[in-house]
């Protein structure tokens, strides 16, 4: 048996979608009911870490629009997806929000073994704008400082693992790994929690050496875009390895035995310090019925895979 978790935004049910569109009186209670359903589903599946389904979040960056001097602006496509996020403009003097932006938007009923996901600074800076910090390097580093305050708050309230979402590292052909590393160092230095950097929306086969040098506890891979054969060429003896085995972009439900075999093969070749399985990215790209099935299958894969 190995450990497991999901991360990011989960899909709303048809009932909740309708309620949000019509702003019905029972909207808050529906949000709560569905949040609890997802938390129970993760517990019942035996996932190693449980996450908030973030049902109220319109996109993974939106809570940061509550920071002073941050303005939501135009819609922008999330990479090559048919889903859009709102670009935030950071116009103020300092990126300070008191460290409670993420924490205050998470459900308080999460169990002790809880995890939370936030965008890593390089991706954050790639997808948003700043009138204050004209140089991308400055923007990235200042975002990192802002995010560190958020992470400290999460860790203080008991989050054992922080998932760092880094799709731009995967998607962009050119990545300044020096900048990525400097920013991640700000996030992880002296932190008493696991930090796992997730790369998805692009093949990182040629970047794995650079990724292994980054100051994070572990790396997560979307194996629908980065072939397992590329990951297997590397040793993960100093890193945690998360195999994003569940495809959040297809309704086809994974066959547990095939997945277990694949995860065992990857782990046998990479010999990770610790092994995890997860979704490849946010489950919100499939409707709720399929997301629920996928959570259950994820737990089955984790239970069936050989311990490292």
């Amino acid at each position: 048996m190995i450990s497991s978790y999901t991360f990011g935004i989960y899909p709303r049910s048809e009932e909740l979608i309708e309620a949000t569109r019509k702003n019905t009186e029972n909207l808050d209670s529906l949000f709560q009911k569905e949040t609890e359903e997802y938390i129970s589903a993760q517990k019942n599946a035996g996932l190693g870490f449980v996450s908030d389904p973030l049902l109220k979040w319109d996109d993974i960056f939106r809570p940061f629009s509550n920071l002073s001097s941050v303005t939501p602006t135009a819609l922008n496509r999330i990479y090559e997806m048919n889903t859009f996020y709102r670009v935030l403009s950071f116009d103020g003097q300092d990126l300070v929000g008191g460290g409670n932006i993420v924490q205050s938007n998470l459900d308080s009923s999460l169990p002790k073994n809880k995890t939370a996901a936030i965008p890593e600074p390089f991706t954050f800076a790639e997808l948003h704008t700043s009138n204050k910090f004209k140089r991308k390097e400055d923007f990235t580093i200042n975002l990192a400082k802002m995010l560190r305050v958020e992470i400290d708050s999460l860790v203080k309230s008991g989050f054992e693992a922080i998932q760092l979402l880094g799709p731009s590292i995967a998607y962009n052909n050119e990545v300044d790994f020096g900048l990525v590393s400097d920013a991640l160092k700000i996030l992880t230095s002296g932190l008493e929690a696991k930090t796992i950097l997730h790369t998805y929306f692009g093949d990182v086969s040629k970047k794995i050496e650079s990724l292994l040098d980054l100051p994070v506890s572990g790396l997560g891979f979307d194996i629908t875009t980065t072939p397992a054969s590329s990951i297997e060429k590397h040793s993960f003896s100093d890193k945690l390895l998360t195999v994003g085995i569940i495809n959040s972009f297809n309704t086809a439900i994974e066959k547990p035995q095939e997945c277990i075999k694949q995860v065992d093969e990857i782990n046998a070749k990479t010999k990770p310090k610790e092994s995890y399985v997860s979704t490849n990215f946010d489950l919100e790209y499939v409707p709720k019925e399929f997301a629920m099935n996928k959570i259950s299958v994820l737990g089955e894969i984790a239970r069936g895979a050989k311990d490292v």
Partner: peptide
Amino acid sequence: FAGRVRSWDNKYYNKAR
């Protein structure tokens, strides 16, 4: 049809398999 998937915010489209 599988169900609705978000386009942005509270806007969704009905996505099929």
